[in-house]
């Protein structure tokens, strides 16, 4: 595994409230996501899945522990620096697509680049390329309400990985889709990750988590298990206890 690490969480702890009302959302989570890797996070409600995703994306700050994105340690940056890092490095995909209705597919995808100060022409070129990657070059001029749910989610994936962005954080991306459309979206996400991105996927649907390289199970804010074929240590542990 020599692919570069895009996301690292080390000893991440996140406590909400204090005293008697203290709730430990995450308790010592270690996690690494490499380029070309899609990692699924599963766990019951309240296990810390959403907090994990928010902390990984710099939307929430851990009480202790470190989050490193593409070599930058979030806690060593100021708010402005973190915001810039988020815009440049990280894309989000949500259950309800979160596209801007008044903008075309291409404009939705180019917007984060333009906000980042990239000249409009270049941002458009990048957006077109990102849409082509998800098979939607012909729909570039359509508005979100002229697209199916599956197509809208593919636009969201294109937006998440436009330009230099390589880390996609997906929160129940198939939640609003039927099983066949959900599968199509997972295929696109998988293909984009294989083509050179890293993904962290929160889902409660095992069928879609199965598209990931690894599944991390959370329970009460702690990683209780991790399955995957690319973890020699875990495999060794299995074979030594499996007799």
């Amino acid at each position: 595994m020599s692919d570069p690490v895009l996301l690292t969480l080390e000893g991440v702890r996140r406590v909400h409230g204090s005293g008697a009302r203290e709730v430990v959302a995450l308790d010592g989570v270690d996690l690494t996501v490499r380029l070309g890797e899609l990692v699924a996070v599963m766990g019951p409600s309240g296990s810390g899945k959403s907090t994990l995703l928010n902390v990984a994306g710099g939307l929430d700050t851990p009480t202790s522990g470190t989050v490193t994105i593409a070599g930058d340690v979030l806690s060593e940056m100021d708010a402005k620096g973190r915001a810039a890092l988020r815009r440049k490095r990280i894309g989000y995909v949500f259950q309800d697509f979160n596209l801007i209705p008044a903008l075309t597919a291409a404009e939705n995808v180019s917007l984060p680049r333009e906000l980042d100060g990239v000249p409009a022409r270049r941002a458009r070129t990048e957006a077109k390329a990102a849409l082509a990657e998800v098979g939607l070059e012909k729909q570039a001029r359509r508005f979100p309400d002229e697209l199916s749910g599956g197509q809208q989610q593919r636009v969201a994936i294109a937006r998440a990985l436009v330009g230099p962005r390589r880390l996609v954080l997906a929160d129940e991306p198939t939640g609003a889709l039927d099983s066949v459309t959900g599968e199509a979206v997972m295929r696109v996400l998988r293909a984009r990750v294989d083509a050179g991105a890293a993904g962290l996927l929160v889902t409660h649907e095992p069928r879609f988590a199965a598209w990931a390289d690894r599944t991390v199970f959370l329970r009460d804010g702690t990683v209780v298990d991790s399955t995957g074929t690319d973890e020699p240590e875990a495999l060794l542990a299995d074979s030594s206890t499996g007799t």
């Binding site: 066949v180 459309t181 599968e183 199509a184 295929r187 998988r190 095992p206 069928r207 988590a209 199965a210 598209w211 990931a212 599944t215 199970f217 329970r219 209780v224 298990d225 399955t227 074929t229």
Partner: peptide, 30 residues
């Protein structure tokens, strides 16, 4: 029970991932 559940869940997820790998080799819906 939670340990047994988790061990089984990991095993079943592993099998699902194998099926999904095979599935990714057939054409996508549509």
């Amino acid at each position: 029970v939670r340990d047994i559940v988790q061990a089984q869940r990991s095993e079943t997820m592993r099998a699902m991932r194998d099926f999904t790998r095979l599935k990714s080799q057939v054409p996508a819906p549509g």
